[in-house]
Computed example of a mutant assay.
Amino acid sequence: MQLSIYQVDAFANAIFQGNPAAIVPLETWLPDETLQNIATENNLSETAYFVPEGENYHLRWFTPSTEVRLCGHATLASAHVLFAHLGYAKAQLNFNTLGGLLSVRKEADQYVMDFPADEPQPFHVLKSLEHILGIQILEMVKGTDDYLALIDSEASLAALQPNFRLLSDLKTRGLIVTAPGTSTDIASRCFFPNFGIDEDPVTGSAHTLLAPYWCKKLGKNSISAIQGSTRKGQLHCTLKGDRVELMGKAQTYLQGTIWV
Results as ranks from 00 to 15, higher is better:
A117H: 01
H85V: 03
I23M: 08
L93C: 06
F164N: 07
V68L: 11
L86D: 13
S222K: 01
T66G: 00
G143K: 00
D169C: 09
L209T: 02
N96S: 12
T63Q: 05
I186C: 01
G87H: 05
L170P: 01
A117C: 03
D169E: 14
K171A: 15
L209K: 02
C190E: 08
P212E: 07
P20Y: 02
A155I: 13
A22K: 08
L170E: 05
A77M: 10
F164R: 08
H58R: 14
L235P: 05
V81F: 05
K106Q: 15
L138T: 07
L101Y: 03
G181P: 07
P122Q: 13
V260A: 13
E107H: 11
P120Y: 00
A77L: 09
S65G: 09
I5K: 08
V260K: 13
L70R: 06
A211L: 02
R231C: 06
L70C: 05
P162S: 07
D152I: 02
L239Q: 01
F11Y: 06
A14E: 14
A149I: 11
N19Q: 03
L133A: 04
V112C: 11
G134Q: 02
K90Q: 15
I186Q: 02
I226N: 05
D185C: 00
E130R: 07
G256N: 09
P20T: 06
T28P: 00
D185L: 00
A77R: 11
A79R: 10
M1Q: 09
L150G: 05
C190V: 15
T34I: 15
A84D: 15
